[in-house]
């Protein structure tokens, strides 16, 4: 896997995430840094949306099923104008709209409230079926975690999506190979992961989930087959962009984040 240096936009989005978690002094840093290029490319280059009309029927629907990666989603939604960037400073505040998991009832641009794992793909499948009934060309993207793929409901939905041959549905897995306790290999090995998705009826491509050009090219090729849902397995690095946090389980979820740690994160991003 190539390890391209992060460009300015990727670094800036990571700085936004650090700013967001600074006030709350907590957040799922590893997951957010793992996801940022996936969301950046989706919102910059792929999705059809209108921040002035978040419920516009013609939009593409994007669901963050691994809700604990919300810091990355919030950074993009703020960047696109779904809510004022100042809202980021109220992350996890009692009266804020941005919780530790995304709430569709509060945050414009969030399609479904997630946090409990294994819910996004079934909901996304239902939304995709509704587009088919309405003969609308909106697409549905569901971003899943690798640990999340331990949940049986993911595979119930995968089997069902395969049956329907819904080419408008794309599952994107943030495959950083780490879950909360340890590596995915140790906790619940997912391999042969791409073959699993294929056997459930998906057309699959694998990509370096931090390579912006490669992500653009991959998403541009969607759907990968005209009569199948698509799966993108994005090989990522947990904590990508802050060398001391990369693949470091202590940074899966961090609370009581100190000013020194914030400075260290910002310094590491600068060097990434």
């Amino acid at each position: 896997m190539t390890m391209p240096r992060l460009d300015d936009r990727s670094k800036d989005l990571r700085r936004v995430i650090v700013r967001t978690l600074h006030k709350a002094r907590r957040g799922h840093v590893g997951a957010a840094f793992s996801l940022i290029e996936i969301f950046r490319v989706l919102y910059d280059d792929v999705l059809r949306f209108n921040p002035q009309d978040p419920k516009w029927k013609g939009r593409d629907r994007c669901i963050l099923s691994k809700g604990h990666g919300c810091l990355a989603l919030y950074a993009l939604l703020a960047d696109k104008g779904y809510f004022p960037p100042a809202e980021l400073d109220r992350f996890c505040a009692a009266d804020g709209i941005l919780g530790g998991h995304p709430d569709a009832g509060k945050v414009p641009g969030v399609e479904a409230s997630t946090g409990a794992l294994g819910h996004g793909l079934p909901i996304g499948l239902g939304i995709a079926l509704a587009q088919r009934i309405a003969k609308r060309d909106s697409r549905v993207f569901v971003v899943l975690g690798d640990g999340e793929c331990n949940e049986g409901s993911v595979w119930e939905a995968a089997m069902c999506a395969g049956k329907h041959g819904l080419s408008s549905l794309t599952a994107i897995v943030d495959y950083n190979k780490h879950q909360s306790y340890a590596s995915t290999k140790e906790v619940q090995d997912l391999e042969p992961f791409a073959d699993k998705w294929r056997s459930f009826g998906f057309a699959v491509r694998e990509v370096d989930g931090h390579d912006v050009a490669a992500l653009r090219e991959t998403f541009k090729a969607l759907p990968f087959a005209g009569d199948k849902p698509s799966a993108v397995i994005a090989h990522t690095v947990k904590g990508k962009g802050a060398s001391f946090a990369e693949n470091n389980m202590k940074w899966h979820h961090k609370n009581k984040v100190t000013d020194q740690e914030v400075e260290a994160l910002l310094a590491a991003i600068g060097e990434a």
Binding site: E111, P122, L125, G126, L129, A134, S153, E156, A157, C160
Partner: peptide, 26 residues
């Protein structure tokens, strides 16, 4: 037929799919 679904012995998925359909106005 486009509004009839028989999706198997997978209740977690059935409820999620139903939620998705309902979110779109069904």
């Amino acid at each position: 037929p486009d509004r009839f679904f028989m999706e198997g012995v997978a209740e977690q998925n059935l409820v999620g799919v139903s939620a998705g359909l309902a979110m779109e106005g069904h």
